[in-house]
Amino acid sequence: MADTSVLTRRHPLESRRAALEALVGDPAITLEPLVSAVDLRVDPDGGALDALAAALGGPLPTAVDTWTGIGDGEALRLGPDEWLLTSAGTDPHRWEDRVDSLAAPFGGMAVDVSAQRVALRLHGAHARELLASGCSIDLRPGRFGRGRCAQTLFGQAPVLLVAHADDDLHLFVRSSFSGYVADRLVDAAALR
């Protein structure tokens, strides 16, 4: 076995950190810390949601494209039988084991997708305006307020938008597309 103890994980957007920090004005774009995440697939009608909510410390979202807080993370409903569950403080493999063992009695399963996405935070009164430069969905606070999330396209890249507040949105993007999204956000911010 190779000695992996000397390997430290780098943020996929480390090379863009300086460019994002150099942005002046509104909104501020920052890199969110990397979190553990699992993709949960389970039948929502089988009682699994109640069991998971009791064990994880918060209700799971009952409507598609909404999210709730659970413990030290978030539960985002991506589809009729699919959730993304994050945890800031649990190791990825432990998080996968825990959620998977909770879902298994209901015929569900969880898969570790921690390395799949990175998150950016757009914070400021013009955050929605900046996102709208590349997103076609209705981002007005009345239609996309706190508690909503949506998988859609930002430019050419699939992203997962999470509304935390009127002026605070998080954007999950696949690591391999994150450079494109960060560059496009920097360009769009410069043009404003």
Binding site: V64, D65, G79, P80, S136, I137, A150, Q151, T152, L153
Partner: peptide, 17 residues
């Protein structure tokens, strides 16, 4: 652009489909 109403996600642009 043409919008298609996804039964789960609501109206979205055709390029998402």
């Amino acid at each position: 652009m043409q919008l298609i109403t996804c039964p789960w996600c609501g109206p979205r642009e055709e390029t998402e489909f």
